[in-house]
Amino acid sequence: MSEEQETPQENQPIDLSKKDDAPKETVYNSPGTPPPFQPAPPFQQYGGMAQPNLPNSTIALILGILSIPACCCYGLGLIFGIIAWVLAGSDIKKYKLDPNGFSLSSYKNTKAGKVCGIIGAILSLLYIFCLIAAIAFFGWAALRDPELMKELLKQKGLQ
């Protein structure tokens, strides 16, 4: 057996005096060509033009988002939510009629605006119902015991 067969290659010391005459492969990429794994740019699909956005996607998203914190503003959130809901509904219909005519990101923004508008409208309705219930309860209490109401108003300094 030879010496190389007896000892594994990983345990042998490296001999720097030997020269490796095997040619080494070098890969040169010219600066103008992209590597083959990169996808083509999206602008070539429509003759150099990108897909347009849905007309009310941004407005529906903004109003939908604003409807959530505005739900405590005595019905302002309800107004924003309903407007966002209607605008998003019309844009979703337009997208479903021609899905290749509009960008997917604007469709997703429209759907998010519709969901936020629905949430804001529901929260606004709950706030308004709670407000009406509180006014009705305290109004009923004032009608049942007017002396107690006068006493409470004196303590608050309103009478």
Rank of each mutant, 00 (worst) to 15 (best):
G81V: 14
G77D: 00
K96R: 15
S90M: 12
S103F: 00
L104T: 07
K154I: 06
L143T: 13
K24A: 09
P41K: 01
P55D: 12
L143K: 08
Q45H: 14
S30Y: 07
S105C: 00
I132T: 06
I83Q: 03
D21V: 06
N11P: 00
P42G: 04
G75T: 13
P39Y: 01
D21T: 10
L76K: 07
A40K: 04
D145K: 12
L78Q: 05
F129A: 14
L123G: 00
T58D: 15
K93S: 14
I62Y: 09
A142I: 04
P41F: 01
N56M: 14
E151Q: 09
P69D: 09
Q12E: 10
A84M: 08
A40C: 02
Q159G: 07
G101S: 05
S90K: 08
K94W: 01
P8F: 06
L123F: 10
G77A: 08
K150I: 03
D15I: 14
N56S: 12
S103H: 02
G77I: 05
D21L: 11
D98V: 03
L63P: 11
I68R: 01
Q12C: 06
P23V: 12
G75P: 10
L148M: 07
N53A: 15
M1K: 05
A40L: 11
K108D: 01
S57V: 06
P13G: 14
D15A: 08
I65D: 03
V27Y: 05
G47M: 13
G113W: 03
A84T: 03
P69V: 10
S17R: 15
P39S: 14
S57P: 15
Q38F: 15
